[in-house]
Design a protein around this nucleic acid. Structure first.
Lengths: 187, 187, 187, 187
DNA sequence: TATGAATGAGCTTTCATTCAT
DNA sequence: TATGAATGAAAGCTCATTCAT
């Protein structure tokens, strides 16, 4: 039941927004009553936190596995970008909730999530730094800002990426990486 | 008074969110009553639309001026990126509202805004295409996706950019452009 | 202007109801502002009272003229019925307002109107009594109740009478009177 | 609880009017909170509809039973008149609400009620027609108009009938019927 | 005569949450 | 595990009215 609540909530939060979705809406779509909801969750916010945690923990775990390999920095970068895109493709509504409804967490939870997002970003920084150190990437990069640019470009995809569109998440990732590695300029 | 309402609303919507800010909060912060609010706005949503319109219309206008120059594509790209960053720097809360609270517009208004955002994106596409045609940019770029990547990277800045931080909007723009033109790879 | 306000108010009160029609609605339909309204009327209720007064005073005056003639009771009865019907035909919305929105008058005004409606009813009683005394009407009638029945039947017409319908107010009055004088029973 | 809400609402709507009675007034008189009201009714209008439905359905049912008997038309007419009067006597406030507050139903509900009131009227027409066909009533009656006159006379009673007055509903009904059958004219 | 800005009280409705069963 | 009745606080919005100009 708890899983079912989370599942339909993600769908409804993603579609209509956190504030716009009432507990009533959620339980009605499951054919149960509000009491049931409060048996499994202390509050609406706790449900939102659970959704956030699952998303970011999953991302962090995948990122960790990628970073622990012996692959080239270029490959690692590609793997991370593709992994995020794969998440957006496979859990599109989760991504929407994660990127859009964070503000509705309470302070404590927000701190927790913020810290984890920061960790994700720092891991990204590190991957880029490694590429610089190994000579794969340019020496004169501002790691912090470039990292934010890459994350921004990829994360932004949740706004427009359509799993049923012309290009799948793999194709988009490939274009992203080519752009990020080689830039726009003709040589 | 209308201007004052818009002004404080942007601040409060940006800080606490559209749904979390009540009309009561807004008018209290101005020392007037709810009736006053509804004298100037038919609904809370109408106020939100006004904020959106001002933001996107301003952006489109600035973009148009940039595109109408005879500058190189590289320069135009820089100018657009810097212009967006300048907006985020100068109207940070507006940007937050614009990028985050769009969902609370009604269908008709959403259509309008969506159409304008699309226009902005298409103008961006065109700028890149011109660069390709003139030989400044690589021939093998996927214009649509690259354009989305650039916009994503720059727009995302509203999440983290701090006007009082170490780097100002000009420095960030420069780093962005360098990254976008030349990529990460060492040569 | 005062006349115009009364005129459109009758239309709007009749169509949509007194409470459902706002001052704003009224002044907007005249292209003026609320201040103007309050220049001519102390309150919304005062406007309603004015409408009521015009209606009942008109009715009372017409009734008086009919009763002062030397006509037969039958004729007088017919004239009164026809006169009410004529009012409903010609001032349909006024009738609606008069019969339906009385409750929104304040106590003092309500008293006044009530007293005048009562006067109208008593004059009716008197007409019937005269008919009885002269032998035109049956001796065993309960004047009070019969009078209320007649007024009920005629007044009720405002619910359904359609000036553009098959029967005009004259035809309906004739049928009413025939029914009231001769009853249903076959002889 | 739902019953209690309906009960006190009828009283308050009848006394002070639908618009003049707030949900607050209703729940306060029951010692509960507004939330409770909305647990049982989707809206104030829905409550009004429920009151209307109960009234008209009850009336239609009683009318049906009367019409299905083998009684004379005269008797049926008396029974219907008496039945309506009995309703006005016993559910005076309901009658007030029913006849006066109909306008506050929404379009869909209004249609429904209107249709049922029309059915009641048509059944009345039919009863009169049967009397004509059987020879009890005059051949030259305009059934539609006479029927409306009778209903008007009886329904109007809700304006003035006082259960504690000199004449009870039975006495009034008897006077009504005598008047309707035999008319005013002396013979 | 008329305007327009502002008020303030009140309205219907929503909703997260509680709790006895 | 789950229900269903009830709460209470707050929300968006309406509107008759006032008043300086």
């Amino acid at each position: 039941m708890k899983e079912k609540i989370i599942e339909v909530s993600i769908g409804m939060f993603g579609q209509n927004g956190f504030t716009e979705t009432s507990i009533q809406d959620i339980v009605e779509s499951l054919g149960v009553t509000k009491g049931t909801f409060y048996y499994y969750f202390k509050s609406k916010e706790e449900l939102l936190m659970e959704i956030h945690l699952r998303y970011i923990d999953d991302l962090l775990q995948s990122q960790k596995e990628i970073l622990e390999t012996k692959n080239s920095s270029e490959q690692k970068l590609y793997d991370i970008v593709y992994m995020i895109m794969k998440h957006i493709e496979g859990h599109g509504q989760s991504a929407r909730v994660f990127f859009r409804e964070m503000q509705h967490l309470n302070e404590e939870h927000l701190d927790d999530i913020f810290h984890k997002r920061d960790q994700f970003r720092k891991n990204m920084n590190q991957a880029i730094q490694e590429g610089i150190d190994s000579g794969e990437f340019r020496q004169d990069l501002n790691v912090e800002i470039v990292s934010l640019a890459i994350l921004g470009a990829v994360n932004w995809s949740y706004h427009w990426f359509d799993p049923k569109g012309k290009l799948d998440e793999k194709a988009v990732s490939t274009i992203y990486i080519d752009f990020m590695l080689n830039g726009l300029k003709s040589t």
